[in-house]
Simulated assay, not measured.
Amino acid sequence: MPDPNPAALEFLLTRRSVPAKTLTAPFPSRDDLTPILTAAARSPDHGKLEPWRFIVLGDAALTRLADLVAARGQALGIDPDKIEKSRMTYADSGLAVVVVSAPQVSDKVPEIEQIYSAGAVCLALTNAALASGWGANWITGWAAFDREFVETGLGLGPTEQVAGIIHLGTPKFAPPDRPRPDLAAITTWVDA
Rank of each mutant, 00 (worst) to 15 (best):
P2S: 13
P2H: 09
D3M: 05
A7I: 12
A7R: 10
A7W: 01
A8G: 11
A8C: 06
E10V: 02
L12F: 08
L12E: 12
L12Y: 06
T14M: 06
P19A: 07
T22R: 06
T24F: 03
T24Q: 15
S29H: 05
T34C: 03
I36Y: 09
T38D: 12
T38A: 13
A39Q: 12
A39L: 08
A39I: 07
A39Y: 07
A40K: 03
S43T: 13
P44N: 10
P44Q: 11
D45R: 06
D45H: 03
G47S: 08
K48G: 11
K48V: 00
L49R: 07
E50K: 14
E50V: 08
F54T: 06
I55N: 02
L57N: 11
D59Q: 13
L65T: 04
L68G: 01
L68K: 02
Q74Y: 00
Q74C: 04
A75P: 01
G77I: 01
I78M: 07
I78K: 09
I78P: 01
P80V: 02
D81N: 14
D81E: 14
K82D: 14
E84V: 04
K85S: 15
R87M: 09
R87L: 02
M88Y: 07
Y90F: 15
D92S: 14
S93L: 06
G94K: 07
A96R: 08
A96H: 08
V99K: 11
A102R: 06
A102K: 09
P103Y: 10
P103E: 13
V105P: 08
K108E: 11
P110A: 09
I112L: 12
I112E: 13
Q114M: 13
Y116F: 12
A118K: 04
A120Y: 09
A120W: 08
A120S: 13
A120D: 14
A120Q: 14
C122P: 11
L123M: 15
L125G: 08
T126F: 02
N127L: 12
A128V: 10
A129S: 11
A129I: 05
S132A: 15
G135P: 11
A136G: 10
W138V: 12
G141P: 05
A144D: 14
A144K: 12
D146S: 05
R147I: 00
R147Q: 04
R147A: 05
E148D: 08
V150P: 00
L154V: 01
G157Q: 10
P158Q: 05
E160Y: 00
Q161K: 10
Q161H: 04
V162T: 02
V162S: 04
A163V: 04
I165N: 06
H167S: 03
L168R: 10
G169Q: 08
G169P: 06
T170Y: 00
P171M: 05
K172Q: 14
K172I: 04
P175I: 02
P175E: 03
P175L: 00
P175S: 04
R178A: 07
P181K: 10
D182A: 10
D182V: 08
L183E: 15
A184F: 02
T187A: 08
